[in-house]
Design a protein around this nucleic acid. Structure first.
Lengths: 135, 135
DNA sequence: GTTAATGCAAAAACTTTGCAAACCT
DNA sequence: AGGTTTGCAAAGTTTTTGCATTAAC
């Protein structure tokens, strides 16, 4: 299994908890540490929130998950296997929608050209007003 | 004074604390609540952190300050009077640079056209790798 | 004089850490 | 067996809240 290989290549071990955390994030699509724990607790017991934090940090270090800050509070994680996407966060209604990275490609290119900055689009959260609230 | 007018128009009062918070953010350019308090404590005593939080929330509601999430945790505030700008946050070295909103204008237009989403550029933080770290 | 705003202290939300026990390899 | 990982509990951060007192108007 890929996860195990990745872990062992760096001297880490494959534990049920780590597998569950990755599965939770993958299944949920977007998950805060608390969300992931909630999902896990529906199928396993005794998993601790601190383990979730530690697993997320590890998995992120391995490049298997990423996180974004979708506003105040807890970061939101998603699996690296899910297609990259940009988050649109409505400041009015709090709604979150996703768009293809294509939508921001012109920006990425402009930034790289002008500043040499290589933007990580999978990390991008754009705040503003959604269609409904903009009126 | 503009601040007082804005406050009173909504039944709020002008207090030294509120004026100081606005001044701190304006002077510092970018400030977390803790930063603002630090600045304030250099010239006034007895101002409490909870007052800073409350003042920032109020001032933001009045449109006098804005905030951005530049990563990890603490939000960063800046005065609305400062020219809008986009933040580029380097995930490698942690450096933060600013670019003109023009650099992302194509993205803003693309988003509005495709999703009807009105992006708030002053809120935008783009994560990625800066010129130096990208190599 | 009213009523909003502050300071303080305590709570809440979110993360991290130390350590003995349990588990992976 | 041996070193890694976990659960638990406790502490650390950051932000919010309740309430009596103070201050703006």
């Amino acid at each position: 299994m890929e996860l195990q290989e990745r872990l062992r290549a760096r001297g880490y071990r494959l534990t049920p908890q780590r597998a569950l955390v990755l599965e939770a994030v993958t299944t949920l699509g977007h998950a805060t540490p608390e969300d992931a724990l909630g999902w896990i607790r529906e199928r396993a017991s005794g998993v601790n929130i601190s383990t979730v934090y530690r697993a997320l940090e590890l998995l992120e270090g391995l490049g298997l998950v990423r996180h974004t800050h979708l506003g105040h509070g807890a970061p939101t994680y998603h699996a690296s296997t899910t297609p990259e996407h940009v988050h649109l966060v409505c400041r009015q209604c709090g709604g979150i929608s996703e768009v293809e990275p294509d939508a921001v490609q012109p920006m990425v290119e402009a930034l790289e050209r002008s500043s040499g900055f290589v933007a990580d689009v999978g990390h991008l959260a754009v705040f503003g007003l959604c269609k409904e609230c903009a009126r």
